[in-house]
Design a protein around this nucleic acid. Sequence first.
DNA 1: CGCGTTCTTGACTGCTTTCAAAGATGGTGG
DNA 2: CCACCATCTTTGAAAGCAGTCAAGAACGCG
Lengths: 244, 244
Amino acid sequence: MKPRLDSAQSARAAELRLSRLARLDDDELRAVRQAASFPQRLPAHRELVAEGAPAGEPHILLEGWMGRIRHFSDGRRQILSFILPGDRLGVGQQNQPRAAATVTALTPVLLCRAPQPRSGRVGAGLAEAYAMSAALEEQYMLRQIARIGRLSAHERLIDWMLEMYDRLELAGLAEADAFPMPLTQEALADALGLTSVHVNRTLQSMRRERLIEFRSGVIQLSDPRQLANMVDYRPPTMAGLSAR
Amino acid sequence: MKPRLDSAQSARAAELRLSRLARLDDDELRAVRQAASFPQRLPAHRELVAEGAPAGEPHILLEGWMGRIRHFSDGRRQILSFILPGDRLGVGQQNQPRAAATVTALTPVLLCRAPQPRSGRVGAGLAEAYAMSAALEEQYMLRQIARIGRLSAHERLIDWMLEMYDRLELAGLAEADAFPMPLTQEALADALGLTSVHVNRTLQSMRRERLIEFRSGVIQLSDPRQLANMVDYRPPTMAGLSAR
DNA sequence: CGCGTTCTTGACTGCTTTCAAAGATGGTGG
DNA sequence: CCACCATCTTTGAAAGCAGTCAAGAACGCG
């Protein structure tokens, strides 16, 4: 039996991530915790918004993984991007009234409304954090294009794992070169533009070569530096985004 | 010998596109023409900004095609997105100080500085047009991901052509199901995640099947409706973006 | 007219998919 | 506590789409 998740617990990842993206003052931190104390729960596979539907208000993901997905009429689907704890969702970059893609819970998730940033000079940290979050989101999309456009199956997996590690680490959800990976291999395949069979084989081969370990839903990277070299991986250039 | 391009001529596409994205008042139209009368010329293959370099100020493309590109250390490259006449460039979605990708001229191009939108109630058309442009850009990126992630070579070409047609049409540069296509097949391959050899073969086959005609740099789509059905193509949901 | 780039084509290789079916795994109810 | 079912993972064999290598043809520019 797992411990009952209190809201303070579940807000931690979001709080950590946002405060790493911009300095938040006490009011803002309080606003985040406050919002997180009225969470919404969604089971796996549940759609939050459908492509083309009214976008609804912005949310912050507290727990679990979501994805932006495009469906084809013949059943194929592509996971366009992942939404991880602490990520903002429900808005495209601009305040578009309609969702550009379907947003779906890939695992059971917990989310809450995103607190409104104040517009004043003081306490604009939240607005800055949101802007930074959107900027990172764009970088992830660009990387996703390069990944599925030009990398082999092996390389796609490696590149993807490195990105997931960095992103989860930012929210305090990964350490020691290991991170939880709750997706089915089919979901992974839909994200990387492969079939689940081939994801499986590739994963096996990576294990045999001791590039990773993967047991009970946790991926352990043996040598991130080496992996990064194999695929030209450069961590998200957060430093370049703000002035710091 | 082609006629000397005066600035009024070259501003036309940008003017048309922007004024279709939002209603621009006379001052704003004038500002666009004014900006376009101090154009900058770049030869093909010239980089405007390198990935990670300071982003510089926003520009508007007047003529020619540009691309956002990611290079790999072993020589592979991926064209992340295309920038067409009337498109804004030089900013990510947010005002990021550093470019998230290299921006390169794929053909000889002409561009100018993007006029600053005024912030007042009146005459916010330009700001709206820019926001719409950014929103469309995001949609194009999502489509690019789905395209190279889940479509076959045939389908990628078709889907891409339909998108290019719609985008060029928006700037008044395409009509009667035909549009100019100045790229080499290698550039096309780098955009679609294929090799130039395979792009060539696929193109041939599409010509044989009478899906398209392609002569002297102009692509003619035989039956856009049918093509759209083949790949589940839905035109950019511009209508959904603004309130109209 | 000549040279470099781009387009074509052929033959061969191979990565990834497809189809199928046999194991694991985990949750549920008896 | 165990049987049972649904879902997910793993494996094999065969087919196919796309890549690689190479070379000749066509095109466009100076």
